[in-house]
Measured scan of single mutants.
Amino acid sequence: TYTWNTKEEAKQAFKELLKEKRVPSNASWEQAMKMIINDPRYSALAKLSEKKQAFNAYKVQTE
Rank of each mutant, 00 (worst) to 15 (best):
Thr1Ser: 15
Thr1Pro: 15
Thr1His: 15
Thr1Val: 11
Thr1Trp: 10
Thr1Leu: 07
Tyr2Leu: 15
Tyr2Gln: 15
Tyr2Ser: 12
Tyr2Val: 15
Tyr2Ile: 15
Tyr2Asn: 15
Tyr2Ala: 13
Tyr2Glu: 15
Tyr2Lys: 15
Thr3Gln: 14
Thr3Asn: 09
Thr3Val: 10
Thr3Met: 07
Thr3Leu: 12
Thr3Ile: 14
Trp4Gln: 06
Trp4Thr: 06
Trp4Glu: 14
Trp4Asn: 07
Asn5His: 09
Asn5Tyr: 13
Asn5Cys: 15
Asn5Val: 13
Asn5Thr: 11
Asn5Met: 10
Asn5Asp: 09
Asn5Arg: 05
Thr6Trp: 03
Thr6Gln: 03
Thr6Cys: 08
Thr6Pro: 02
Thr6Leu: 04
Lys7Asn: 06
Lys7Ala: 10
Lys7Thr: 07
Lys7Asp: 12
Lys7Gly: 06
Lys7Pro: 15
Lys7Cys: 10
Glu8Met: 06
Glu8Thr: 06
Glu8Ala: 11
Glu8Ile: 05
Glu8Trp: 09
Glu8Asn: 06
Glu8Gln: 08
Glu8His: 06
Glu9Pro: 01
Glu9Met: 04
Glu9His: 03
Glu9Asp: 06
Glu9Gly: 04
Ala10Met: 06
Ala10Cys: 09
Ala10Phe: 03
Ala10Leu: 04
Ala10Arg: 14
Lys11His: 15
Lys11Trp: 15
Lys11Gly: 11
Lys11Cys: 15
Lys11Gln: 15
Gln12Gly: 10
Gln12Cys: 14
Gln12Ser: 13
Ala13Lys: 05
Ala13Thr: 05
Ala13Val: 10
Ala13Met: 07
Ala13Asp: 05
Ala13Ile: 06
Phe14Asp: 00
Phe14Gly: 00
Phe14Cys: 01
Phe14Val: 01
Phe14Ile: 01
Phe14Asn: 00
Phe14Ser: 00
Lys15Asn: 15
Lys15Glu: 15
Lys15Ser: 15
Lys15Asp: 15
Lys15Tyr: 15
Lys15Val: 14
Lys15Arg: 14
Glu16Lys: 05
Glu16Ile: 05
Glu16Cys: 11
Glu16Gly: 10
Leu17Lys: 00
Leu17Ile: 03
Leu17Arg: 00
Leu17Phe: 01
Leu17Glu: 00
Leu17Trp: 01
Leu17Thr: 01
Leu18Gln: 01
Leu18Arg: 00
Leu18Met: 07
Leu18Pro: 00
Leu18His: 00
Lys19Asn: 11
Lys19Met: 14
Lys19Arg: 12
Lys19Ser: 13
Lys19Gly: 11
Lys19Cys: 14
Glu20Gln: 08
Glu20Trp: 04
Glu20Tyr: 07
Lys21Trp: 05
Lys21Thr: 07
Lys21Tyr: 07
Lys21Cys: 09
Lys21Glu: 04
Lys21Ala: 08
Lys21His: 07
Lys21Asn: 06
Lys21Leu: 07
Arg22Pro: 02
Arg22Ile: 06
Arg22Gly: 11
Arg22Val: 09
Arg22Gln: 13
Arg22Leu: 13
Arg22Ala: 09
Val23Glu: 00
Val23Asp: 01
Val23Gly: 00
Val23Leu: 05
Val23Asn: 00
Val23Phe: 03
Pro24Lys: 04
Pro24Phe: 03
Pro24Gly: 05
Pro24Ser: 05
Pro24Asn: 04
Ser25Ala: 13
Ser25Pro: 12
Ser25Arg: 14
Ser25Ile: 11
Ser25Leu: 14
Ser25Trp: 11
Ser25Asn: 11
Ser25Asp: 07
Ser25Cys: 13
Asn26Ala: 07
Asn26Gln: 08
Asn26Pro: 02
Ala27Lys: 04
Ala27Leu: 08
Ala27Tyr: 10
Ala27Ile: 13
Ala27Asn: 04
Ala27Glu: 04
Ala27Gln: 04
Ser28Asn: 12
Ser28Glu: 07
Ser28Asp: 08
Ser28Gln: 07
Ser28Thr: 12
Ser28Cys: 10
Ser28Met: 07
Ser28Arg: 07
Ser28Lys: 08
Trp29Tyr: 07
Trp29Phe: 10
Trp29Arg: 00
Trp29Gln: 00
Trp29Ser: 00
Trp29Met: 03
Glu30Gln: 10
Glu30Cys: 11
Glu30Ala: 11
Glu30Tyr: 08
Glu30Thr: 09
Glu30Val: 08
Glu30Ile: 09
Glu30Ser: 11
Glu30Trp: 08
Glu30Leu: 08
Glu30Phe: 10
Glu30Met: 08
Gln31Ser: 08
Gln31Thr: 14
Gln31Pro: 02
Gln31His: 08
Gln31Trp: 06
Ala32Met: 02
Ala32Tyr: 02
Met33His: 08
Met33Leu: 11
Met33Arg: 12
Met33Ile: 08
Met33Trp: 05
Met33Cys: 13
Met33Pro: 00
Lys34Ala: 08
Lys34Asp: 10
Lys34His: 11
Lys34Pro: 12
Lys34Gln: 13
Lys34Ser: 10
Lys34Thr: 11
Lys34Asn: 14
Met35Phe: 07
Met35Trp: 06
Met35Pro: 01
Met35Asn: 04
Met35Ser: 05
Ile36Thr: 05
Ile36Glu: 00
Ile36His: 00
Ile36Gly: 01
Ile36Ser: 01
Ile36Lys: 00
Ile36Ala: 02
Ile36Phe: 02
Ile36Cys: 06
Ile37Met: 12
Ile37Ala: 11
Ile37His: 12
Ile37Ser: 08
Asn38Glu: 10
Asn38Trp: 08
Asn38Ser: 09
Asn38Asp: 12
Asn38Arg: 09
Asn38Thr: 10
Asp39Phe: 01
Asp39Cys: 02
Asp39Ser: 02
Asp39Leu: 01
Asp39Gln: 00
Pro40Glu: 07
Pro40Lys: 05
Pro40Thr: 06
Pro40Trp: 09
Arg41Ser: 02
Arg41His: 02
Arg41Ile: 03
Arg41Gln: 02
Arg41Lys: 04
Arg41Phe: 01
Arg41Ala: 03
Tyr42Ile: 02
Tyr42Asp: 01
Tyr42Trp: 13
Tyr42Thr: 01
Tyr42Cys: 02
Tyr42Arg: 00
Tyr42Asn: 02
Tyr42Pro: 00
Tyr42Leu: 02
Ser43Leu: 14
Ser43Phe: 14
Ser43Asp: 13
Ser43Gln: 14
Ser43Gly: 13
Ser43Met: 12
Ser43Trp: 11
Ala44Tyr: 03
Ala44Asn: 03
Ala44Ser: 09
Ala44Leu: 03
Leu45Arg: 00
Leu45Gly: 00
Leu45Met: 05
Leu45His: 01
Leu45Ser: 01
Leu45Cys: 03
Leu45Pro: 02
Ala46Ile: 08
Ala46Ser: 14
Ala46His: 11
Ala46Met: 08
Ala46Trp: 10
Ala46Cys: 10
Ala46Thr: 14
Ala46Arg: 10
Ala46Leu: 09
Ala46Pro: 14
Ala46Tyr: 09
Lys47Pro: 06
Lys47Tyr: 07
Lys47Trp: 06
Lys47Phe: 09
Lys47Ser: 13
Lys47Gln: 12
Leu48Cys: 12
Leu48Thr: 10
Leu48Ser: 06
Leu48His: 05
Leu48Asn: 08
Leu48Phe: 05
Leu48Ala: 07
Ser49Val: 10
Ser49Glu: 12
Ser49Ala: 10
Ser49Asn: 06
Ser49Arg: 10
Ser49Met: 12
Ser49Asp: 14
Glu50Trp: 05
Glu50Cys: 06
Glu50Val: 03
Glu50Gln: 07
Glu50His: 05
Lys51Met: 06
Lys51Thr: 02
Lys51His: 02
Lys51Pro: 03
Lys51Cys: 05
Lys51Ala: 04
Lys51Ser: 03
Lys52Trp: 06
Lys52Tyr: 07
Lys52Gly: 03
Lys52Met: 11
Lys52Asp: 03
Lys52Ile: 15
Gln53Asp: 13
Gln53His: 10
Gln53Leu: 10
Gln53Glu: 14
Gln53Thr: 11
Gln53Ser: 11
Ala54Arg: 02
Ala54Glu: 13
Ala54Thr: 09
Ala54Gly: 03
Ala54Trp: 10
Ala54Leu: 06
Ala54Ser: 08
Phe55Asp: 04
Phe55Trp: 10
Phe55Cys: 05
Phe55Glu: 03
Phe55Ser: 01
Asn56Leu: 13
Asn56Lys: 11
Asn56Thr: 09
Asn56Ala: 12
Asn56Ile: 11
Asn56Ser: 08
Asn56Pro: 04
Ala57Met: 12
Ala57His: 10
Ala57Ile: 07
Ala57Pro: 02
Ala57Trp: 12
Ala57Ser: 10
Ala57Gly: 06
Tyr58Asp: 04
Tyr58Thr: 03
Tyr58Ser: 03
Tyr58Trp: 10
Tyr58Lys: 01
Tyr58Leu: 04
Lys59His: 06
Lys59Trp: 05
Lys59Asn: 04
Lys59Ile: 14
Lys59Leu: 09
Lys59Val: 09
Lys59Cys: 13
Lys59Arg: 09
Lys59Asp: 04
Val60Ile: 13
Val60Glu: 08
Val60Gly: 08
Val60Thr: 13
Val60Cys: 15
Gln61Gly: 12
Gln61Asp: 13
Gln61Arg: 09
Gln61Tyr: 10
Gln61Leu: 12
Gln61Ala: 12
Gln61Lys: 07
Gln61Val: 10
Gln61Met: 10
Thr62Phe: 14
Thr62Ala: 14
Thr62Arg: 08
Thr62Trp: 08
Thr62Glu: 13
Thr62Gly: 10
Thr62Tyr: 12
Glu63Arg: 13
Glu63His: 12
Glu63Leu: 09
